[in-house]
């Protein structure tokens, strides 16, 4: 099995796909970094040139005063305490809250690329993993070796998973390394709020916790990885079913884009929540954004994706081992 995976890696590297993907990610990160930098600049101009430390110190004093007042509700108090903690952290670590560090940029980048950009990059690899063997005709050589077909396919799938992990790692690394040049590399310990629940009555903040940004980032990366694996597996299935790489990619792309559109307009069509493509924005649950359809939450979305994943994998293996090759 090791040797088969080695083979697939050899081909993947020779095709230079990963290099292309790294380049695309690199260019995009540079663009977004510049955009973010511009935004920070205009903000600074608006605020004037006064020292941000003094302002922050003043805010902390204000907040502490308000906390000592006995008239505010417990819930409000909690919120104030959290923001106080945040402000104190920024001051202690010499971070301007108006200017994001590289870790914050990385978080924003991950959250925004989870439903379209990362899946797109994954598709570049997954969609031709099997179909390219058909279009080159090499599948005839591949399947006439004394190796069972399911092993051939499994080696390809393992390679896909490795490549996806690598893409996520590259995304994380590049977004940190490039944006850090402009925003500085500090801020992994910055506190961030999570644990919101969206209920019928509105936002439930009873479970809200303060997390260090690096922990939050790890969770984000995990969710992005999970989504990428699911999307990768679906493209992989299409690559097995459809011999043309372009057609397979087209179908997948249509599904992803329709997901982005659907999320904005299906709130009344409840059963749409079983589509995989409206469940891709997993990181939104961490921030407490309202889900596209009522009743969706992190575990629901993950289960839906898991079912799609399992079905896609099953279909891939069934078809690939049975199919006649012409």
């Amino acid at each position: 099995m090791n040797k088969l995976v080695q083979n697939e890696m050899l081909k993947l590297i020779a095709k230079k796909r990963l290099v292309v993907i790294a380049l695309i990610i690199g260019v995009l990160v540079i663009l977004f970094t510049y955009a973010q930098y511009k935004q920070v600049q205009t903000q600074r101009e608006k605020l004037g040139t006064s020292d941000w430390r003094t302002i922050l110190q003043q805010q902390i004093v204000d907040t502490t005063n308000r906390l000592s007042s006995s008239r505010i509700s417990d819930e409000w108090k909690k919120q104030l305490q959290i923001s106080l903690q945040q402000q104190q952290y920024y001051l202690d670590h010499d971070i301007n809250p108006a200017e994001p560090g590289a870790p914050t940029f990385m978080r924003i980048f991950l959250e925004n690329s989870i439903d379209l950009f990362i899946p797109l990059m994954v598709m570049v690899i997954a969609s031709d993993l099997v179909s390219s063997e058909h279009s080159l005709g090499t599948v005839k050589l591949l399947l006439t070796r004394p190796v069972n077909r399911w092993k051939v396919l499994l080696s390809k799938y393992i390679t896909l998973c490795l490549a996806i992990s690598l893409i996520i790692a590259i995304t994380g690394f590049l977004s940190y390394a490039i944006s850090g040049v402009v925003f500085g590399y500090k801020g992994f310990g910055a506190p961030i709020l999570t644990g919101f629940h969206v209920t019928d009555e509105g936002l439930n903040t009873s479970d809200v916790k303060l997390l260090s940004l690096w922990k939050f980032l790890l969770m984000d990366l995990g969710l992005v990885w999970f989504v990428a694996i699911v999307v990768g597996t679906l493209s992989f299935m299409l690559s097995v079913l459809i011999r043309s790489t372009a057609a397979g990619m087209g179908v997948m792309l249509a599904a992803l884009i329709s997901g982005a559109i659907l999320s904005n307009m299906v709130s009344s069509w409840e059963s749409a929540k079983y589509f995989f493509m409206v469940n891709l924005r997993l990181t939104d649950y961490m921030k407490g954004n309202a889900p596209p359809i009522e009743g969706m939450n992190l575990s629901f979305s993950m289960s839906v994706l898991l079912v799609w994943w399992a079905a896609a994998l099953l279909v891939s293996f069934m078809v690939f081992t049975k199919k006649d090759v012409y």
């Binding site: 083979n7 050899l10 081909k11 020779a14 080159l136 050589l141």
Partner: peptide
């Protein structure tokens, strides 16, 4: 039909590994 983007040697290595 062999892999055009691999060298002849790597093609043979690929199939030898199987």
């Amino acid at each position: 039909e062999l892999y055009p983007y691999l060298s002849g040697y790597n093609n043979l290595l690929h199939f030898a590994r199987m």
